[in-house]
């Protein structure tokens, strides 16, 4: 008896539920206003952060950049990336370092240039010099073809700006070689790239 009563109760509930479902199907409307609110907030946040990142600097996996408090955003320019493993110029790996044991207790990565990669008493990096000269020739050719001219009607001079992005363990000796090489290839301004402190 009890089971009959239970089953009849269940069926009554099911019938009531069917009615409710019918009512819901007729009057159900998805509330899109709150969804719109969320989207607007996300969109505003993305647009705000988008305007701050107009440069196209790339990086290499595993690089650890140091932190800086400098507020200057780097404009687009040619860039060289140095890690304790290799050197990359404009997304092209131009040389690999030789891994050394490194000094005991040294925080720098143990690496060195191959003897064949440097000349002028170890000051100039040959593959980097070649790549920089190639980039300079290309830039000068583009400027010669460009309609933009200076006051004397001459093509705009080569800017000679180079962004240096180095791993925090890279030593000044390597950076000095890069600056010397760039200077001998006609590059006059260096930008040292680091991560903004307030960016976390």
């Amino acid at each position: 008896m009890a089971s009959v009563a239970t089953s009849s109760g269940t069926s009554r509930k099911a019938i009531r539920g069917r009615g409710r479902r019918k009512r819901m199907r007729n009057g159900f409307e998805l509330q899109l206003t709150s969804l719109m609110d969320v989207f607007v907030i996300i969109l505003v946040f993305l647009l705000k952060s988008y305007s701050a990142s107009t440069n196209s600097f790339s990086t290499v996996p595993g690089i650890k950049l140091p932190l800086t408090g400098s507020p200057d955003n780097p404009p687009d320019s040619l860039q060289v990336i140095i890690t304790p493993e290799a050197m990359t110029f404009e997304n092209e790996r131009i040389l690999d370092f030789v891994q050394t044991a490194g000094d005991a207790g040294s925080i720098s990565g143990g690496y060195a240039f191959k003897k064949t990669d440097v000349d002028e008493g170890g000051r100039r990096v040959i593959p980097l010099y070649d790549a920089l000269m190639k980039a300079r020739d290309k830039a000068e050719l583009l400027r010669a073809k460009s309609a933009k001219r200076d006051a004397n009607g001459q093509p705009l001079p080569f800017e000679g700006e180079l962004a240096i992005q180095a791993d925090k363990r890279v030593e000044y000796d390597t950076i000095r070689k890069i600056m010397y090489t760039a200077g001998s290839a006609g590059y006059k301004l260096f930008r040292f790239i680091a991560m903004k402190k307030d960016a976390g």
Binding site: L43, L46, L47, S49, Y50, A52, S53, N55, F57, T59, L65, T68, S70, P71, D72, N73, P74, A163, M179, A182, G183, Y187, K188, L189, F190, R191, F192, I193, A194, M195, K196, D198, A199
Partner: peptide, 19 residues
């Protein structure tokens, strides 16, 4: 925007080649 935004905030320090 999610695909094109870079969330890596970078800054630079300028130094001229001594002449």
């Amino acid at each position: 925007l999610l695909f094109t935004t870079s969330f890596l905030a970078i800054a630079s320090i300028e130094s001229p080649f001594p002449q």
